[in-house]
Amino acid sequence: MRELIWELCKLPGVSGDEGRVRAWIINQIEGHCTWKVDPLGNLIAYKTGRNRAKNRVMLSAHMDEVGFIITDIAEDGRLRFAPVGGIDPRVVLGRRVYVGEKALPGVIAAKPVHQLTKEQKSEIPKIEDMRIDIGADSAEQAREHVQAGDCAVFHSDSTAFGDGFLVSKALDDRAGCALLIDLIRSPLAYDAVFVFSVQEEVGTRGAKVYPYHVQPDMAVVVETTTAADIAGVTGADRVCELGKGPVVSYMDRGAIYDRQLYRLAFDTAAEHGIPCQTKTMVAGGNDASSVHSAVGGVRTLAISMPCRYLHSPSCVLQESDIQNTRLLLEKMLEKMAVL
């Protein structure tokens, strides 16, 4: 599973530019299901289980990651860019990025600290004032390699660290994609539909259309969600904690989840001895915000892996949470199919 996640995280796939991730996933699931790609780029996989399901259950995870889009090439050969998705400006400066199809290395930095006033030293520059430097000496040289509209992704040294933690860019939501791939490649009790979606980070655009293709009775959005279980943060502010299992949401900024499915998830977890938690704050949102009200209404649940430093080049997950989420998803699929 770890290797699968690393391979997925490595791929560049900023919202609206998920092609390489999709192609890679198709290669992984080919032969284990039938699949199609819808006009927006969602990859929909139909998996046959040992039994026909009473309910059509859909699991989805998004392929896209937060990143950048090149908006212009400045006169000095450096690149103007804008964020794609919600990126805290505090995690942009001093990073390496890869630009465009050819993954051209670039760096994001600003005026050196030595030349700043006391006030400037503690002020994060605005993203619109930052530039990507690819080493070009002039706009002409830069134009040979990059054009406006190219996307850029964070570099990251993806690695395991500490006591079973993983750190990488794009764990949101390639970890979810990895779980779906793994389920598709496993024998399942019932038929199910799996969706690898696009454009989640720019307003869950993919999720507005894939339910139309699938016409599901029930849906589980497989995600990563913000955990703030870090030093100096206590109580409910922590939202959820790594190592305490999958996070089942009752409500977030995008959806109120199906009450019966929410209870079923905790009951199922208890039945199989899977640690499970909920969020102690109404925060965040995901594809469920579009899925639950699509095609006349879909009973929807979100099962997420708690993730520290979400939307940064250093997202952190706990491997035990990934395994436990995998297990809970499999057990939930069995229950939901015949509910």
């Binding site: 505090r90 503690s122 660290f161 750190v167 913000t226 952190v316």
Partner: peptide, 21 residues
């Protein structure tokens, strides 16, 4: 060892922390 500089998610940032290092 590998470490990651912990960053508070945006929803926990106080107004005076916004845009500040």
């Amino acid at each position: 060892l590998v470490g990651v500089v912990a960053s508070k998610p945006p929803h926990l940032q106080l107004p005076q922390e916004h845009g500040k290092a």
